[in-house]
Amino acid sequence: MNQIIIETDNLTKKFGSNIAVDNISLSIKRGEVFGLLGPNGAGKTTLLSMLCTILKPTSGTARINGYDIIRDNSRVRKSIGIVFQDPSVDTDMTARENLQMHADLYGVPVSEQKERIKDVLNLVGLSDKAEDFLNTYSGGMRRRLEIARGLLHYPRVLFLDEPTIGLDPRSREHIWDYIRMLRKREDMTVILTTHYMEEADRLCDRIAIIDRGKIIILDKPDVLKGGIGKDTVILITDEPDKLQTILTGENISGDIRISGREVKVEVSHANLLLPKIMESAIKAGIRIESVTISNPDMNDVFIHYTGKNLSDDETRERTGRVAMMKRRRAR
């Protein structure tokens, strides 16, 4: 069933002379997990806000679940669930009360409310904390409750705006698990904005990279990564200069760099060329201490298409995790 659930039509939002979202037209299929990737201020949240009927487009429109976001916003709202970037729960109320309010606001039939609240609490593992006030919840627990809340009225589309921002790695893994589970369990479409490259890579069926209000490229993560097509082989040795000379001589790659004891070799297919590299090194009597293959990740894709890296604080955190990931891949 390749039904289109979201279709935007030259959607544009201007704030004064600043164009936050610039003529975006895209369609998203039912059941997809769709990622909007971009640096801060790229227009992700503005695009999302328009789809959620919080912001009126300057021009253009969109249809969600067959309803127009401008003319039919009440029906659109019933069709979607939203987890905002900033917390939006009432911390002076218990988890159950927050869910109860949501069920009432979205017109969930009274006879079903109790059962559904029980279900969603179960789903996010908060059943035993249902009667606790939310000011006793941790950030991760609140976010989980918000996801539960967003599911309560059986939306066709779930919008997650930076669902894992500011969460510790464990809570982040938790939330990823829920998103994957949701996708399997019902044919719900999930739209996710994030600036965590790894998150987008691991969760999304398709990714749109947005910069300055425009979609720069839109495709499956693998295609995106394959599209820039370069692997890096990192060799650690005591004789990096010698290794560089030899590999250059063998015409293995035109891009061989040295940093400290590391030799970085850019190749198109690392798995095919690695044996040759090793052979040449052994022949020349160079002892290789360790080898790491790194495939391009979403960050490389991102830099490739936007020419930008992420802002400093995000980069610091990212490099830590990406390094870890690369190590995992290298095994």
């Binding site: 009440s74 939006s88 949501h102």
Partner: peptide, 8 residues
């Protein structure tokens, strides 16, 4: 926000 985006 939760109230404002609800269908009510």
């Amino acid at each position: 926000k939760e109230i404002l985006v609800s269908p009510i």
